[in-house]
Every structure is written in structure tokens, then in C-alpha cells.
Nucleic acid binder design. Structure first.
Lengths: 137, 137
DNA sequence: CTTGAACCTATAGCTACTAGAGGGATTATA
DNA sequence: TATAATCCCTCTAGTAGCTATAGGTTCAAG
């Protein structure tokens, strides 16, 4: 059995975050000692690792809940898990594309200014005037 | 003079958001009609456009506050504005790099699964087992 | 003058945590 | 066995940047 601190060290999930996940129903309430402290099983540790990993990959709590619900039914087809991963991949790609457009814009703004006075600063002008933008955002 | 609704339409900033910006001290409290409704000047409209544009580019409220404070002093050198833009560009590039690492991982996970049963679903396995990852995240 | 759209304030909710207060439990050492 | 150090408990509130709702007031067109 692991204390919450041991769980935290092994998974790199902070203690208040573990309690938060319990509150959110992502992990089951563990057994308690006589003194009311949480004690976790190996299975709980693995589940928390799963959650940590999925969060690192940017999945929402909601998506993770769906995935863990799915994995509780090994006999079901995994099309849903497939779909969740696919949707997430699409959203990641969208974010990348959006950020890359911003990068172009910011690089242009930043380079355009050669450290004169505020009065003529291109950074300020470019931010004030959307029409100076090369692309839409 | 513009009503808050007209401001909203022209800048595509939602009405509650405009009020929120006022609360946060990003825009000055405008004059009011006898009936207590907000009336904005042309200058206020331009300032809101600036804010909208900067937000679209992903700058934080804090950074925008810094920039607008700077632009209120046209005689100062614009090095600070330059620095804010530069820092933001660096953080955008970092986010892009991070998302691209995730993209690789997710694409691999998603392709690895060919819609069998949950029991052997690679999506679930990959999320459960960090050691299956190609790179760190 | 009436009516309907637009406006007002205040409060609560969203995501995914994080921090702090004030106190109790566990464990290692003397 | 006593004590100190560390760990853990609950509860509340705060973070960013809004968005939504409720319940009421004002404005502008016809």
C-alpha cells in the first residue's frame, strides 16, 4: 500500500492534484488508515500513471474519464478510444497551425522595430493596427 | 460616442468581456449617460482594438497592460515593448515545439491501433505505459 | 406613448489545478 | 516510551480569462 506522498513521488503528480482527481471522480476513493489517511493499491498507482501520461499529452479530464471508462470494458471494440485519440490529434494539429501563424506575425512585428522611441515603435503600431497583419488570425 | 454594443460589434470583443477589461483596469471607465449606460470615445475604440489584436496574438492581459502603459509615454525608448514582443515570440516557439512532440506521439499512438477489442487497444496501452513513448514530454 | 432591444449590476461557473490555514497521524530516533 | 520531524487531513480561496444567468433599468424607433 502507498501513501499519497509515495504516489506523488512515483507519478510526479502533486498531492493536492491527486486529491483533486479523487474529487473529480477520475480515481476511486482509496481505503483509509485508522487515522483517516489514504492508502493506495498498485492498481491505483497504475491508474494514476495513466492519467498523468494522458494529461501530459494534453488530453482533458473529460477525455481521460471517457478512456478509462472504456478500458473498464475489455470486451468492447476500441473504436471509441481510437476516435478520442484521433480527435485530440486533430486539435493538437490545429493549435500548431494557429501558433505558427502567430509566430510569423510576431516575428515580423519584433523585427520591424529597431529600438527607437515609443512614438514610432513598430511593435505598438502593429498591435494597434490589424490591417498591418499579413494573415488573418 | 459609442455604446458598449457598438464597441463590441466593431472590435468583435464580447460585451461582458469589455466590462471585464474595465474591471481589470485595461480600459478606462468611460463616461455614462444619465441612465448610467457606458459611452465610449473613438480613442477608447482604438484602444480596445489594440487589446483585441494583442489578445488574438496570445499576449496576456499583464503583457498588454505593460505595453499600453509604455505607449502612454511616447518619449521613452521602445526597448521594453521590443522585449515584451520578443519574449512572447520565444514562448510561442516553445509551445509550438512542445505541441509538435505531442503530435508525433499521438500520431504514433493513433496509427498503432487498428480497431480491435479494448483488451488489446494500443491507444489504451500507450497511455498506460510511458515507456512506450519515443520521446520525453 | 408604447414596446422591444439594449443596457445595468452582481454573482456564479468554467478548466485544472495550486496555496494556505489550522490541525491530526505516523515514523524514526533517543 | 517520549518526543520531534515529517507527513497527512479538510476546507477555503485564489489563479487566467472569460462566459452565463438573474433580475431589473434605459434607450430609441414608430
Amino acid at each position: 500500500m502507498f501513501s499519497i506522498g509515495q504516489m506523488s513521488k512515483q507519478t510526479h503528480v502533486k498531492i493536492p492534484t491527486i486529491r483533486y482527481y479523487e474529487q473529480m471522480g477520475l480515481i476511486a476513493p482509496p481505503v483509509r488508515t485508522e487515522g483517516n489517511q489514504r492508502r493506495y493499491s498498485q492498481a491505483a498507482l497504475e491508474r494514476l500513471s495513466f492519467i498523468k501520461h494522458a494529461r501530459d499529452l494534453g488530453l482533458t479530464i473529460e477525455a481521460i474519464r471517457d478512456l478509462t471508462d472504456l478500458s473498464a470494458h475489455p470486451e468492447k471494440p476500441c473504436a471509441d478510444a481510437h476516435r478520442i485519440a484521433k480527435e485530440h490529434l486533430a486539435s493538437v494539429r490545429e493549435r500548431i497551425a494557429k501558433l505558427q501563424r502567430l509566430e510569423v506575425e510576431l516575428a515580423r512585428i519584433e523585427v520591424g522595430c529597431d529600438t527607437g522611441q515609443m512614438e514610432s515603435c513598430y511593435v505598438i503600431q502593429a498591435l494597434a493596427d490589424h490591417s498591418l497583419c499579413v494573415e488573418e488570425h
